[in-house]
Write a protein that binds this DNA or RNA. Structure first.
Lengths: 253, 253
DNA sequence: TAAATAGTGTCTCTGAGACATTATATT
DNA sequence: AATATAATGTCTCAGAGACACTATTTA
């Protein structure tokens, strides 16, 4: 914000006398797509709606933004209220804003959606506004025959979020956000395989990751295990790179 | 939107009796960053504000969204009203939504910003809400000593837009949006140089562009000129690729 | 003719796909 | 011992930086 200009006398005078216009006004919500990987399946968090409209249908967590908070703050607050999940210090980013006039059957609602990626650790529970919170495999939600009824335009939001996380893995180190503090290169590779839905070449993947500066660094604790049969693997932790170059590219682009 | 669910009797009943809540409501605006290249300088369109707040300061085009239109429609409508520019069939995309509670000194205003890239052809003029519309070199606006006073958080929006166009050039063919229907490879290279602010190697650039499928294709009209001294250049037109691969990468990432 | 840009060709290095081989763990 | 994963190494090809050289235009 440009503060200097606003301190001019005539600007101050205008603001002192300013009366909010009789402008219709919009309802404004913040929603968040929470991705994680469960049993090798890219999954996301849905809550079952307790009230109308779309009563009993599934929706991504979210809700109305308060007058005193940003939509970023609202997304985190609603997520916590509805599922108990706290994203403290966890990566999340703005996805897109949805403003189609008919996207909410009640009234005009603008929604800004966010995306986040979390390790498979916390077990979400239903909170204030929701009956139930549950992780579903993305494949089941989108192509699934299991008919998971989604609310509003949330299928569109989920598809946009999916494309975001898929492309984000290429040029940023966010794949590590899906993992605990230390992990093996196989763990990291499985993140890519789950998100992209394709198998990657094991040793080529290793070489690419290790030759990309700042992606991962070896953890001091060496030779720990991942609880799988086979040779014990070196543990790594997140490096300090914000962007990957060279990028880890997927095949189908 | 999921129409099937909404046609259920109980959902219909709820919607029939629905009364808009006594909810505060937000003002909602759509703004648009219009980039073009003028004399080899990446430039963008600003309008001089005719009223308070920030009277006399410069702002990116935009304004309040109507209840019956999407923010996409609003951005295009406001641009036309304020500058006379029509973006019919021209590429534009959503940039980001800004929701900081104090970003507008009058009242709470949410804004969704868009970006577009246009050839250096139309001359914008002031419209309804603005005194004046003018293209400024991005360098002058951001690092400039010429002190161009910007309104609201528009400097942030412009910086975000700048980073978007810079990265967009790498993996998408949008550079051609800055050019007329036919252009030479030098024209295209100068777009990259203007946006990235770095000189590119002439013959390597040629090879990369021509070996990227669908980026450009030779125009039927051969050997036309670009009105520069030197050998006449082959003309090209936009290809049908939506994504560039291999990408045209910049140095500093 | 000089200057400027268009366009071609070549050398080299890096990154990635494909694949073979060795190492170390569990069962 | 059989099996599974970890880790290293090698061959080859594609893409990109650097650079030399030729072609065609204007001034």
């Amino acid at each position: 914000m440009n503060e200097t200009i606003l301190s001019k006398p005539d600007e101050q005078e205008f603001l002192k006398n300013y009366q909010p216009k009789d402008y219709p006004g919009f309802a404004y919500t913040a929603d968040i797509v929470v991705f994680t990987i469960i049993s090798g399946q890219l999954s996301l968090l849905l809550i079952k709606r307790g009230g109308y409209p779309y009563k009993g249908c599934w929706a991504i967590p979210g809700g109305f933004v308060e007058q005193t908070e940003s939509s970023e703050d609202a997304a985190l607050r609603e997520l916590k209220e509805e599922t108990g999940l706290t994203l403290d210090g966890i990566y999340f980013e703005q996805l897109k804003t949805y403003s189609q006039p008919d996207r909410d059957p009640r009234t005009r609602v603008i929604s800004t959606a966010y995306v986040t990626f979390i390790p498979d650790l916390p077990v979400p529970v239903g909170g204030d506004d929701a009956d139930e919170a549950h992780f579903f495999a993305v494949a089941d939600i989108l192509d699934g025959n299991e008919s998971i009824d989604l609310s509003f335009d949330h299928e569109t939001i989920i598809r946009d979020g999916l494309e975001r996380v898929r492309s984000k893995l290429e040029y940023s180190p966010v794949a590590t956000e899906f993992l605990p503090e230390t992990f093996t290169l196989s763990d990291l590779r499985r993140v890519y395989e789950s998100v992209w839905g394709e198998n990657l070449h094991v040793s080529n993947f290793r070489r690419k990751v290790l030759s990309t500066p700042g992606f991962v660094e070896a953890a001091d604790t060496k030779g720990e295990s991942v609880f799988e049969t086979g040779r014990l693997a070196q543990l790594y932790k997140k490096g300090d790179a914000k962007i990957l170059h060279p990028a880890i590219m997927r095949k189908d682009d």
